[in-house]
């Protein structure tokens, strides 16, 4: 019991309490203004939540996500505030919780090795790509093969093919770009964690979208829900499939941005947070300006 209390108290230091509103503001601002400026089919509304989760822990991350959605939905006046966001507070909480778990496992720490580890990671990414291509060629060559191998219905063939291809392309492109830009194997872990977070977020948010909004949320993803429903899917199936298409991509991109942000912050700043040591890793960062100053 005492251990649990200490674990909870450790996540809510004054520094974390100050970071939480910053994370909430980042979620709301990037989810509204920047997303509107770029007009991309992703949400970008959990960068702050994942950042707090990774640096502070699961409870702080979950609370940041829940509060961000509740404040965005119910405390800020229109046009910034939007009551449609509020019910998705549960999803945001789960995203923060998972981010905290990834932070405690040290998933987001940099893994800057020599050329050998970069080459090994690149080979691993190519292997994943080849395996994906093989699966694609085997299972998605024809509807019959798809039914035989996966056991799903023929009606799911085209949509599953689209989903599989889109997620694999985004995964390979992101990981490749991360390796090229950051020369850091840690990006592979962070983007992989984003993929898992996205799948869980889709599963959690599907019933909320179906029950509260009849499957649509007024965004660009409504066209996907419409397409799935036109194909004969139930409300829940359509929202789940829409979520499985957009959430993994969104969370992979979000995780990459958070990994980039953490890698760019000074070691001294990060080390002061509860999960700071785990986010930094044990190896000294030879490239960072902070390290070279000391």
């Amino acid at each position: 019991m005492d251990l649990l209390k200490r674990w909870v108290a450790r996540q809510f230091t004054t520094r974390v309490i100050v970071l939480m509103p910053v994370g909430i503001a980042i979620d709301i601002v990037l989810g509204s203004t920047v997303q509107q400026a770029l007009k991309l089919p992703i949400y970008l509304d959990s960068i702050g939540t994942i950042l707090v989760g990774v640096l502070a822990g699961p409870l702080a991350g979950a609370l940041t996500g829940i509060l961000a959605n509740l404040i965005w939905g119910y405390l800020l006046p229109a046009p910034i505030g939007s009551t449609t966001i509020g019910p998705f507070a549960i999803t945001a909480g789960v995203i923060g919780l998972l981010a905290g778990l990834w932070g405690q496992l040290g998933i987001f720490r940099p893994r800057r090795g020599g050329r050998a580890s970069i080459v090994a990671a690149a080979v691993a990414v190519v292997l994943v790509g080849v395996l994906a291509l093989y699966t694609y060629a085997r299972a998605y060559a024809s509807p019959d093969q798809f039914v035989n191998i996966t056991g799903f219905q023929t009606t799911d063939f085209d949509r599953s093919r689209l989903f599989f291809l889109a997620v694999m392309v985004v995964y390979v492109v992101l990981v490749g770009a991360a390796l090229y830009l950051r020369r850091d194997v840690g990006a592979v872990f962070a983007i992989g964690a984003g993929l898992v977070t996205g799948i869980v977020a889709a599963i959690v948010s599907a019933p909320i979208a179906a029950i509260v909004y009849g499957g649509v949320t007024g965004g660009g993803t409504d066209a996907l829900v419409a397409a799935f429903r036109a194909g004969g899917d139930s409300l829940y199936q359509a929202t789940l499939k829409q979520g499985l298409l957009s959430d993994p991509m969104d969370k992979m991109i979000t995780s990459f941005v958070v990994f980039f942000v953490i890698g760019s912050l000074s070691r001294r700043f990060i080390a002061r947070f509860p999960n700071g040591e785990k986010a930094l890793g044990s190896e000294p960062d030879v490239d960072s300006p902070a390290a070279s100053e000391s």
Binding site: I26, V29, L30, V34, A37, L38, L40, L44, I47, G48, L51, I253, V257, F260, V261, S264, L265
Partner: peptide, 11 residues
């Protein structure tokens, strides 16, 4: 444009 816009806001 995601990183050039998001990163300065976060920092």
């Amino acid at each position: 444009g995601v990183v050039p816009l998001a990163a300065p806001v976060v920092f």
